[in-house]
Design a protein around this nucleic acid. Structure first.
Lengths: 409, 409
DNA sequence: GTATTTACGAACGCTCGCTATCTATACTGT
DNA sequence: ACAGTATAGATAGCGAGCGTTCGTAAATAC
């Protein structure tokens, strides 16, 4: 009892392993309640062992007991059933942008307990911290979760995030903004681990979780800026910290990157502003087109895709060009990563099938294995959802003691 | 004892875990022998537990006992020391090409026991199988390892390999060649698991192992063909099976891939044959250049780099163009993967610093985090070494029972 | 030659999980 | 309505493994 070194131990560690196995089995079948007999089958443990573990977990509050299933009209004594008690360790996800703060609270099973969003016309850094505090409290109240119960927090920040220090390079457009202050501030409000990650990464995590399990996912966030997250078999790929920065891919044979610029070549070529600009130019050149009618003076990105959907050839040409540029930029990465799927999210994703089909056609010409190309179903909630997901992973990784041996050095 | 389901168990599984912990500790410190006291410290287990585990491992042949260290003149009774007995489960690596067969035998600790290479001027598929058998026997004899001791075999094949079935798409240039026959043949010779993988993947694995531990590695094999392997924290990234096919990256804005072609655009642009062709053309255009002198009629890839190293401007221009094309093709993947290092191997890697510096300069213009750019130190042995490495990983993964819970679904 | 230091070896007690048995509960059939 | 049966939960005994403690062996220092 004195040493307590991690890695190997006596019988008490055995017990921990078995309790964890039981808890894991329950988690996997969530939210469906499980009978003890099923747990015995799934864990391969003996019944008394499982029973003891269940008792322990009930006492600790990780499981909750259900009455017998009234729908189950089988023979014999009705079994008591247990399921995850989500409130045992709820987590909080945070998505902070210059004009919008979103906070979500999720229970252990991944059920969303509350989601609060507040928009405002550009806060200062100081105001933003205040707003964040308010929105967190609102979300906690709505979820009926006391602040001290929160087991982990993950915050999303644009820019490149250093995974451990939480320092941010390429700070976004809030003057005086510092992610370190954010972490400190949140840690002051909630006494639990607080982590920070790139928003594109978190969105990718959410999408990967929604698609389920294994495989390689390349999740593109396409708005004014362009970023991507890579999820391989459920784990985020970070590289040295700046993985997925597709916005900086060169599009022209003479392009050169300037790290000081806040935007990269691909963003300047096919970011939402660039698409709108291309549309405006095309409308000017073709005043009689449907595109010009639709958009008028204040022609928007959405107008371009709307006109293209109505088969306006002028708009279609713009979409074609955008799709071509995007596909040519992404194709090398698709060849190298060979992902199971490429999912597009963010504002531009609202374009729908018009854009997706055009990209798909182009990508088919440039790759060997053609990954599934999809639109993100999560829309604007992707980032918060991913933040909650990562917080959940953190909690589970701490609670389920992965016994020893990890690296394959 | 009847169930035997994986995942959780009683005290016998505890023993297995602890024995594995001890074995793992010994492995990590290989080839240095360890005293029992050190094992106690490293595993956190009690001395009797460790002693028992060591006895068991000695009996099973996984460890060998050393006499007391004669150099160690410390007080007290001299400690018994144990180390990995590599011959307990030697593995075999196989690199099969149309003109060359290489076989390596390695012991458990990763020590190379033998390496036999045989070249020939194009065998038929049938002859090749015979040659493989001979070379395997030679390598086994040289390593003094009986065939039945081999615990795992990994074979390298060019082309895209389906990880599980062992079927190969994009078969290389041996008529009638089938990797399935190869597997069957080897399984007939050696009664153990036989696996197959892409040669670029295996080379990447070897290079990653040589560089040590964690991080993301992009290992390019650059010869007549171009391929790459990706290793993330010691594990190979395969995607859906065709990851790393950089040879098919488009170089021209109008390039289109034809999956039927055996070569992709980048290979046609900067493969070793293409480099030689560029050199010949440049020599024709500049008959007085050093390049033309060096190469003559049969100008070779090596001549181009040699002339460039001697600062011949004509050759330097060719190298510059090659480097530029390569860097532009690779830059998007570097941005997306953000690897710790990019290592170049294969025939073209012999070009040395001339090419490396040119690529480095170009890549610096096109990426945010600039990964280390290096030449592979393993030269032609990379693929066999990687094959042995993978076989070793297989053996260890089977022997060290990773207790339960894996996926983070 | 004795004291000291270090390591090996054996006996005891504790915890834990597995097998086997017994009790509890609800549905079914006569 | 009552016995039978099938399923689930609770309890006791057994075996295995680990950790602690003590005794013993082998080398060096004085």
């Amino acid at each position: 009892m004195s040493k307590g070194t991690v890695g190997g131990g006596g019988t008490t560690m055995l017990r921990r392993i078995n309790v964890a196995a039981v808890l894991d089995a329950v988690r996997r079948s969530a939210p469906a309640p499980l009978r003890v007999a099923e747990l015995v089958e799934r864990t391969g443990l003996a019944r008394p062992t499982v029973a003891q573990a269940v008792d322990e977990l009930l006492d600790a509050g990780w499981l909750q007991q259900h009455g017998p299933d009234s729908a189950d009209r089988s023979l014999g004594r009705p079994a008591i059933r247990v399921s995850l008690r989500g409130r045992a360790a709820p987590v909080l996800g945070l998505d902070v942008g210059p004009h919008r703060v979103t906070v979500g609270v999720s229970d252990l099973a991944g059920r969303k307990l509350s989601l609060v969003r507040r928009s405002g016309p550009g806060w200062t850094a100081q105001q933003l911290l205040g707003v964040i505090g308010e929105v967190i409290n609102e979300a906690l109240a709505e979820a009926e979760v006391p602040a001290e119960d929160i087991a982990a927090v993950v915050a999303a920040s644009p820019g490149i995030v250093d995974e451990h220090t939480g320092r941010v390079q390429l700070v976004p457009s809030v003057p005086g903004w510092s992610a370190i202050d954010l972490i400190k501030h949140v840690r002051g409000l909630l006494d639990c681990p607080v982590m920070l990650d790139n928003d594109a990464n978190l969105a990718a995590l959410a999408i990967a979780a929604a698609r389920g399990g294994t495989g390689t996912l390349l999740a593109v966030q396409w708005g004014e800026r362009l970023g991507a997250g890579i999820v391989i078999d459920g784990r985020l790929h970070r590289g040295t910290g700046a993985a997925g920065e597709i916005g900086f891919i060169a599009t022209d044979t003479d392009d050169v990157i300037n790290p000081e610029d806040s935007r990269g070549p691909l963003e300047r070529a096919v970011g939402s502003e660039a698409i709108a600009a291309l549309g405006r130019q095309a409308a000017l050149d073709n005043p009689q087109s449907r595109l010009a009618e639709l958009g008028g003076e204040q022609l928007d990105t959405a107008d371009v895709f709307a006109a293209a959907a109505e088969r306006d050839p002028v708009a279609q040409a713009v979409v074609q060009q955008v799709a071509r540029t995007f596909a040519r930029a992404l194709a090398p990465s698709v060849l190298v990563l060979d992902p199971t799927a490429v999912v597009i999210g963010g504002g531009v994703a609202r374009a729908g099938a018009v854009l997706l089909d055009a990209i798909s056609d182009q990508l088919r010409l440039l790759t060997l294995n053609h990954p599934k190309l999809e639109l993100s179903a999560l829309a604007e909630d992707a980032v918060v959802t991913g933040a909650m997901r990562m917080a959940l992973d953190e909690v589970w990784q701490r609670k389920l003691p992965t016994p020893a041996m990890t690296s394959t050095t």
